[in-house]
Structures are given as C-alpha cells and as structure tokens.
Simulated assay, not measured.
Amino acid sequence: MKQKIADLLIKYPFLKWITNRFILATLFFILWLLFFDTYAYFDHRTIDKEIKKLEDNRDYYQGEINSDDKNIQKLYRKEEVEKYAREKYYMKRENEDIYIIDSDKEYQTDKTN
C-alpha cells in the first residue's frame, strides 16, 4: 500500500503539495470565507448589486423631486397656473373653444388589402 502511494507521489508530484496539512488548512479557510462565513464573498456581491440598484433608484427619484420643485416654483405665477391648467386639464376661458387633434389617428390609413 505504501509502495502504491509512493509510486503515485513520484508519478504525480503535485499530490505531495495537495496532501500537505498546511495547504489543506489554507484551502479549507479560503473555501470557508468564500461560501460559508457571514462575510462571504458571494453574499457581498449580491448585497453590492442591491445597493447599486437602490442608489440608481435614489438618483432617479431625486431627479424627479428636483423637476417637480422647478414646476412648483413656476406655478406661483398666475400665468403659469393658467398655462398648466390649459395644457394638462384642457380648461378654457369663457367664450373659447378648444379643439384636440390626435395626430396618431389623423395619418392612419386602412391597410386591409
């Protein structure tokens, strides 16, 4: 049995390194840190992706808040309030008619040949 092991070690010298107890302990430690520890690499990677997604959402909503603040500042003037009401809610003055033209329907053709 010892002869077979000695022959294998001569034939495959890397087995001598692998069977070293310090190498085995180091490999065990590395595997433990990568997969099983509280601070595992793969857990950190997943958490980092989630943090990146949340930061992107924060940036998007911060931009929306800034845009809304600018619109609110505009609405302090009477002319801007009237313009906003006309554009968004189709309000009108007395004795005034509003025509809404839907350009998508205007240029459609019947293609049922």
Rank of each mutant, 00 (worst) to 15 (best):
Y61F: 14
I5D: 07
Y89L: 08
Y90N: 14
R77W: 03
Y39P: 01
I5E: 05
Y107R: 12
E106M: 06
I65D: 02
K105S: 11
Q3F: 11
D69K: 15
N95W: 10
D110R: 03
A40L: 09
E50K: 15
K49E: 12
N57M: 05
E55M: 09
P13Q: 14
T112Q: 00
Y90F: 12
I10L: 12
F28V: 00
T112I: 02
E80K: 13
D7I: 00
N95M: 13
R45E: 14
K70N: 13
D102L: 08
L24N: 03
F14A: 13
F42W: 14
A6D: 11
Y12I: 05
S67M: 14
T109P: 00
I23E: 00
N71S: 14
A85V: 03
N20P: 01
D43R: 12
A85C: 01
N113Y: 12
I23Y: 01
D37S: 08
Q3W: 11
R93V: 11
D110K: 06
K11A: 05
W17A: 15
M91V: 03
F14G: 06
Y76W: 00
L33W: 10
F28M: 00
W17D: 15
K83R: 05
Y107P: 00
S103V: 12
K78S: 04
L75P: 07
A25W: 00
Y41Q: 10
E87K: 05
Y60I: 14
D69R: 15
D104K: 03
E50Q: 15
K49S: 14
D97I: 09
K52R: 15
K74F: 08
A25P: 12
D68M: 13
K16C: 03
N20G: 06
E82I: 10
I30Y: 04
N20K: 02
F22P: 02
H44P: 05
S67K: 15
I65M: 03
D48G: 11
K2Y: 11
T19E: 15
H44E: 01
T26K: 04
Y107L: 06
L33N: 13
N95D: 08
K105G: 03
L24Y: 06
L34R: 09
N71M: 13
Q62F: 08
I72C: 07
E64D: 04
Q3K: 13
L15R: 13
R93L: 06
E55A: 02
K2T: 09
R21L: 09
D102W: 08
V81M: 02
I47G: 07
I23K: 01
N20W: 03
Y12N: 15
T112R: 05
E50Y: 12
T26W: 00
T109R: 06
I65C: 07
K49M: 14
Y39E: 07
I18C: 13
E80Y: 10
L33V: 11
T46R: 04
L24E: 10
K92M: 12
M91T: 07
I30N: 07
Y89G: 10
D37H: 02
K70E: 15
L24D: 11
D69V: 07
E96H: 10
F35D: 03
